[in-house]
Write a protein that binds this DNA or RNA. Structure first.
Lengths: 225, 225
DNA sequence: CGAAGAACTGAACAACTATTCACGGTCGTT
DNA sequence: AACGACCGTGAATAGTTGTTCAGTTCTTCG
C-alpha cells in the first residue's frame, strides 16, 4: 500500500494538465469562451471528460487558471518591454504599446479573457488579472510623474482608464476589423498609444516621439503573429 | 367576430409592456443582469411567466429592448448637455462628463447594459448601443477638431477609446467603491473627464478649465441620484 | 346577454452541459 | 507475479431556466 508517484508519472500528470489548459486556450482563441466546454476541451486534449475533473475541481477553476496564465504572459511581456526602455516616459510608452500589440495579436483570446460572457463565475480571476496589469501600468505612470514628466494624478485611476481605452478600442465589439492589413494594425497601435500618453499628460509633440520609438520593437512581434 | 382593440385595451397593453420592461430594468439595477430572469421579472411586473412571451418573443428580445431603452436615455442626456455648451470644446467636455455622471449614478445597471455576462446573446444590441454613443462623442470630437481646438485624428477610434476609459475606470470591476462619498464621486468624474480631454489633445491647462465648467451642471444630477 | 375572439395563467416541457461515479486499466511496491 | 493504490473512462445524472400550450378569464359587440 505504499504507492509513490515516480518522477515519470509526475511529469506525465503535469503534461496532461498543461495539455488540458492548452486545449482550453486554443478553443478560446479559435472560437471564443463559449467554445470552452468540458467535453470539447477534453477531446482536444485527448482525454475523457471525466479526466478534466481529476485536474480541475470545476469549470470555473479551469477557466480561472486559463485567465491567470494568459495574464501572467502579458504581464511578463509588459515588464520586459518597460524595463528595456531608456527612461520612465519611454517605459510607459513601451508598456502601453506592448498591451496594445498583445491584445491585437490575440484578439479573440483577449476578448475572452477580458470580458466575454462565460456561464460560470470568473469575476474574481478577471479582477485579479486586471488588477495586476493595471498595477504595473500604474507603477510606470508613477515613475514618470516622479521624474517630473507628468503632472501629479491618481495613477491607479489613470492606469485603469488607459487599459479600458486600449481594450475597448482594440478588442471591444466596436473595434474595427483591420486584421487584414498589417500597416493598419501598426497605425492602430500608434494611435491608441498616443491617446494614452496624452491622457496622462504627456505633451502632444513629445508623445508622438515616444510613440514612434515604442512602436519600433513590438511591431515585429505583431507582424510575426 | 369583429373584435377590435378599444383604446382602453391598447393603453393597458402598452402599460403592461412598459411594466415588464421596467421590472427588467429594476431587476438589473438592483441585482445585475443575472437577476433578469423571466419568472422573477414576471412576478415583479405582476404577470405570469407566459405573459412575458405575449410581449417579447424571447428573453434576448426583452434584454435587447432594455439595452436600447437605457441607451436612448443616455444618448438624449449627452445631446442635451453638449448642445447647451457654449463651444465645441465645452460641448465635448459636457458630453464626456455626462457619460461619467450617468454611469456612476446607475453603476450596476450600466455594468449590466455594457458588459456583464448574460446567458442569451445580446451582442447586437450592445454593439448598436455603443455605436450610437460613440458616434455622438465622435461628432463632438470632430467639431472640436474642425474648430482648430484639437489635432486631427481618427475621431471614431478616439471616441471608442474614451468610452472604454470612462467605463472601465468608473463601472468596471476595478472601479473603486466611492459610492459613500459624493465628493469623491465628483472627483472621479473630474479626473476621468480630464484624462479624456487630454487624450484627444486638449492642453492640460485648458482641459482643467473645461472640466470645472462641465462638472458644474451634471454634478447636481449626481447628488440627486 | 351571449357568442367569439383575445389575453392571461402557470404547470409541464425541453434542451443544454457541468458533474458524477462505478468500472477497467496502469503503475509502483514487495 | 501479485497486490494495492491511483489514474482514466464515458455514459448516466442532475440542476437550471427559457419556452410552450391547453385551459381559464376577460373583453368586445350583435
Amino acid at each position: 500500500m505504499v504507492y509513490r508517484r515516480t518522477h515519470q508519472v509526475v511529469k506525465r500528470l503535469a503534461a496532461r494538465r498543461s495539455a488540458i489548459l492548452a486545449a482550453a486556450r486554443d478553443a478560446a482563441a479559435e472560437s471564443g469562451m463559449a467554445a470552452v466546454q468540458i467535453a470539447p476541451v477534453a477531446v482536444r486534449a485527448n482525454v475523457a471528460a471525466g479526466t478534466v475533473y481529476r485536474y480541475f475541481p470545476s469549470k470555473a477553476d479551469l477557466i480561472s487558471e486559463l485567465i491567470a496564465d494568459v495574464s501572467r504572459d502579458e504581464l511578463a511581456a509588459i515588464r520586459r518591454a518597460a524595463d528595456a526602455a531608456p527612461g520612465p516616459s519611454s517605459a510607459l510608452a513601451a508598456a502601453v504599446s506592448t498591451v496594445a500589440v498583445h491584445v491585437l495579436s490575440q484578439r479573440k483570446l483577449s476578448w475572452g479573457i477580458l470580458a466575454e460572457p462565460v456561464d460560470v463565475d470568473v469575476t474574481e480571476s478577471r479582477l485579479a488579472s486586471r488588477r495586476e496589469i493595471a498595477g504595473e501600468i500604474a507603477i510606470r505612470i508613477d515613475a514618470a510623474v516622479r521624474a517630473g514628466h507628468l503632472p501629479a494624478q491618481d495613477t491607479q485611476l489613470a492606469a485603469t482608464a488607459l487599459l479600458g481605452a486600449l481594450h475597448e478600442s482594440l478588442v471591444g465589439p466596436l473595434a474595427p476589423d483591420h486584421l487584414d492589413d498589417p500597416a493598419k494594425l501598426r497605425d492602430a497601435v500608434q494611435s491608441v498609444t498616443l491617446l494614452a500618453l496624452r491622457a496622462v499628460g504627456v505633451m502632444d509633440a513629445r508623445a508622438r516621439g515616444l510613440v514612434v520609438q515604442a512602436a519600433a520593437v513590438p511591431a515585429k512581434a505583431l507582424v510575426g503573429a
